[in-house]
Every structure is written in C-alpha cells, then in structure tokens.
C-alpha cells in the first residue's frame, strides 16, 4: 500500500509534466514548489489543463478499479466487471442518444446543457439501466445475482440494438464523436466536470470499506455469509448503487475505458491475496496509477495528437490479462 501510494505520487508528478506543450513544465513545477513565479502560460497549462486531467484520471481510475473489485466479489466471479450491472451499456445508449438526438432538442436547451449534455445523458442512461436491471433481478426482497447476470446480457443486447439504430441514423461527424466517446479519453477533463463527478465517485468509494468484510464472507456463498451475520441484501443494495454511481460518473466524464476494472483487482489478488480489506484500497491506488500511466502514453505516443485512452488500456490490458490467465490457471479455477 505504501509502495502504491508512492507510485501514485510519482505518476502524478510525471503526468503533470508530460504533454504536448513540451518539457519545460518540469522546470515550472520545481519553480512553483520553491515559491518562484511562473509564467501565465505555464500556470494555465498546469492548473487548468494538466491538474484537472490528473485529478480526473485518479478519480476515474480509482472508481473503475474499485467498482470492478466490488462487482467481482458480489458476483463471486473474477471475470465480472462494472459493465455487468448494465452501467456501461446504459451509459453508452445515453451518450449516443445525446450525440445523435441532441440536435433535435430546442436550441435553448442545447445551449444551456452545452457540452454537459453527453456526460449527463450517459450518467442518466447508466443509472436508469442499473435500476431497471436491479428491479428485474429482485424478487420478494431478494436480489438474485444469477438473474442479474443473465438479465444484464439481455438488457445489454437491447440497449446495444437501440444504440445500433441511433448509430444508423447518425451523420458522419456524429459517428466520429460516437467512436471517440466509446474509446474514452481524459482530454475533456475540466474543473466543472470534476465538481460534478467527484462527489459521486468519492461518496461511492467511501462506502466500499464497509463492504470489505461482507465481500470476504460472500466468497463462501450467500447462505454461509448470512450465517456469519452479514446483512446480505443490504450489502448488495449498497454495492450495486455505489458501483452504478461511481462507474456512471466515471463513464460520463471520460467515456468508455475498459480493462481497468478487471486487470487491477486481478493483479492485486495475485500480489496481496483476495482479502477485500486490503484489495479495495489498493485497487483504488493501482487503478489511479495505471490510468494515469495509460493517459501519459495516450498523450505522448502520437504527440501532438492524442490516442483515445481506451485504445491504450485495451492494447496493454488485453495481452496482460491473457498472460495473467495463462500463468495462474490453477488458482483461477472455480
């Protein structure tokens, strides 16, 4: 945990000093730390572009990784990810609707929503689909994880089809917007977006330490967990709502960023074991570190242009995930 905290500080500093405008910012940063004046240009880049991006990266990375760990614990399946509760698909549909249908809204509304329209629609879409799925899976006050899993597939197909219809209707520039949104990026990070996303993510993350013991017990199964005195239904409610809030806010702010939610908890289980009391806080740290690292790669690899971060996480995450699987087959068998 100490190691990871240190890593986070290092990547944060690296992230602040990396980017399209050149390396002079390292100097600016050292000057700033020593209390010297820095130029307006450097100040703007540092505080209005890099810093919000850094904070958003930390928030989104932590949100995705912790949500992944919570979902895997809840579904008792190491391959579960936040997408399973329908957040991803619903948020995607929301975003696509906003991009394609947004132009049909009255101009006044378009103007007032401005560039918040897409994130807001994504958040609402994610939240609504989670609630719908949750209602489907809950019968007589008991939420069936299996029904939720299968219902999620059905609901995902349905929202996918609706998204498909909208994509079919879209024009070329909208298609470009859609594709980029789907690949995810931290480039759009602003203080305004942080003020919207941060409270939701922080609130959800703050709830997770209370889930750790319950998630450990849940590994035995739902009935044994109940016999250990765990209020199983209540912890399911808290987990699903927290994940929907955290991932909904993360996806709304930065688009679809894959693999953090699966790779980070996995890697940590191999390093420090599956105990959620240590897994959850470490997942927050490692998720933030990895997303910042991926963001630096996305910014520098084809500089001055930017590669969408979703491409980076998938290109690195996919093979890495396979490597973990191949190395640890025996431990992953359920």
């Amino acid at each position: 945990m100490l190691v990871l905290s240190g890593l986070l500080v290092l990547t944060s500093v690296a992230s602040l000093t990396t980017g399209a405008s050149g390396a002079s910012l390292w100097k600016a940063l050292t000057q700033l730390v020593q209390g010297e004046e820095i130029s307006l240009r450097e100040r703007v880049i540092l505080f209005d572009i890099r810093l919000p991006r850094l904070i958003m990266g930390i928030l989104v990375g932590a949100a995705l990784a912790v949500s992944g760990a919570v979902m895997q614990g809840l579904f008792r399946n190491p391959l579960a990810d936040p997408g399973l509760v329908g957040v991803g698909a619903g948020a995607g549909l929301g975003a696509i609707s906003a991009i394609v249908l947004g132009s049909f809204l009255p101009l006044g509304m378009q103007a007032s929503l401005g560039y918040f329209m897409v994130p807001a629609a994504a958040f609402v879409g994610g939240w609504v689909s989670t609630i719908v799925l949750y209602r489907i899976a809950t019968h007589r006050g008991r939420t069936s994880v299996a029904v939720m899993l299968l219902g999620g597939i059905a609901l995902g197909a349905l929202t996918g089809a609706l998204s498909g219809i909208l994509i079919y209707m879209a024009d070329d520039s909208q298609l470009r917007d859609l594709t980029f949104w789907g690949l995810g990026s931290l480039a759009g990070a602003t203080w305004d977006k942080i003020w919207l996303a941060a409270p939701l993510i922080m609130l959800a993350l703050a709830a997770t330490p209370f889930l750790a013991r319950s998630l450990n017990a849940l590994a035995l199964g739902e009935a044994p967990a109940a016999h250990l005195g765990i209020p199983v239904q209540r912890m399911k409610n808290i987990s699903i709502l927290s994940v929907a809030a955290a991932v909904g806010a993360a996806v709304a702010a930065s688009g679809g960023i894959g693999f953090i939610g699966i790779v980070v908890p996995h890697l940590l289980r191999l390093l420090i074991g599956p105990d959620h009391r240590f897994l959850l806080p470490n997942a927050a740290l490692l998720g933030a570190v990895l997303l910042l690292a991926a963001d630096m790669i996305s910014r520098t690899i084809i500089a001055p242009a930017e590669l969408p971060i979703g491409i980076v996480t998938a290109t690195l995450g996919g093979p890495f995930f396979l490597w973990i699987l191949l190395r640890n087959r025996s431990l992953l068998d359920l």
Binding site: A223, H227, L228
Partner: peptide
C-alpha cells in the same frame, strides 16, 4: 451453520477462511 459442500470464489488461504468465523 456448516453447509454440505462449499466452493470458494477466490483463492483464499485456509487461514483467511477460518478467520471469517472469528469475525462473526
């Protein structure tokens, strides 16, 4: 309550499993 057969979702060690009883 001891169930008939139990499969565990993640690679927990024996210590961690038994410790769950202690926490309850």
């Amino acid at each position: 309550v001891l169930p008939q057969a139990s499969r565990i979702a993640f690679p927990f060690t024996v210590f961690e499993i038994v410790r769950l009883g202690l926490t309850a």
